[in-house]
Design a protein around this nucleic acid. Structure first.
Lengths: 162, 162
DNA sequence: CCCATCGTTGTTATATAGTTACATAACGCT
DNA sequence: AGCGTTATGTAACTATATAACAACGATGGG
């Protein structure tokens, strides 16, 4: 379970950050009677490991040890569980998953995805949600789930490219 | 080039609707000096045929005649062209494509996708765009492209399920 | 404590989606 | 006609996701 990737943001204690996420997940699942099994925990840890969107098959590769691979389905099942619990979000435009920093409150994911560094900044802007809900309401549309993904260039990459 | 699918909305002259879309596409490409070749035209027609999101491989199947299939790449290249020209939108959460009713003005696609009937209603709400731009601006994020997709139940399906 | 049950995981195969590399053909200009 | 650019053909391949079914294992009732 060694760390996979160096962290992009400097001055960030990543192992503490991952530990925090795992701790919150434990607590949350316990409080809900959901079972955070070894596999699910491992997948959650690997999702968090790079602190950026990570594909299912990348996680699958991470889990392989000495020629022994788990099946894709194993990873997808764990990811489905984690998404259901709100512990990770799926980023549709990347076919990838990222840990949610605030799993305690249900919320749609809104992301700014940088084309250079690959980071995804999670937003949760009430204006955006409100505007979408209003539109949906106008159309008599009942909302299950919203996907908001903005592709572009983050502030850090823009200045470093300048 | 037979029609593929019956149209969901009743009282809708679908062949006229498709013809209109093809006509607009012709005009638009002509005005831009872009080449709406036979293949691209056919793919555009097939995207419009069901009037709902359609996957690349479904289009590929549509194009097969008597054992003769085109390659996936052929379809993807045509779709890439059509998306570039703003004639179709890609719906990320479905890996599917849908014709744009208003290709003349550049705009991000915003969609309400019904989980029952599979229809995707295109919105273009300034409030939503403005809210997203504002958020991105707050973070110093430069926007290339935004994806807004709302999964849920459309008004028609809700009443028919009631 | 044992068994029934249900949720979880394993295994294998398959479906769906998208790309790479390279060759050939059509167009459009001079 | 000659030439560069754009479009299409061909084949193999990678990536993403699901289906069907078997087996395991934790939990709760008797």
């Amino acid at each position: 379970m060694a760390p996979i990737t160096a962290q992009a943001e400097t001055g960030h204690d990543h192992s503490r950050c991952v530990d925090g996420a795992l701790g919150r997940a434990e607590a949350l699942c316990a409080s809900r009677g959901a079972r955070l099994t070894a596999i699910r925990r491992q997948v959650l840890e690997l999702v968090w490991s790079g602190h950026r969107p990570r594909g299912a098959y990348a996680i699958l590769d991470d889990m392989a040890v000495e020629g022994k691979r788990v099946a894709p389905l194993t990873v997808y099942r764990a990811l489905d569980f984690l998404v259901e619990q709100g512990l990770v979000h799926r980023i549709e435009s990347l076919n990838a998953y990222i840990g949610c920093p605030d799993p305690d409150h249900a919320h749609p994911g809104q992301f700014l995805v940088c084309r250079e560094c690959g980071n995804a900044i999670e937003l949760n802007d009430a204006r955006v949600s409100a505007a979408i809900d209003a539109c949906a309401g106008d159309q008599g549309f009942t909302v299950d789930r919203t996907t908001v993904e903005v592709r572009g260039l983050c502030a850090a990459c823009r200045s470093s490219l300048a």
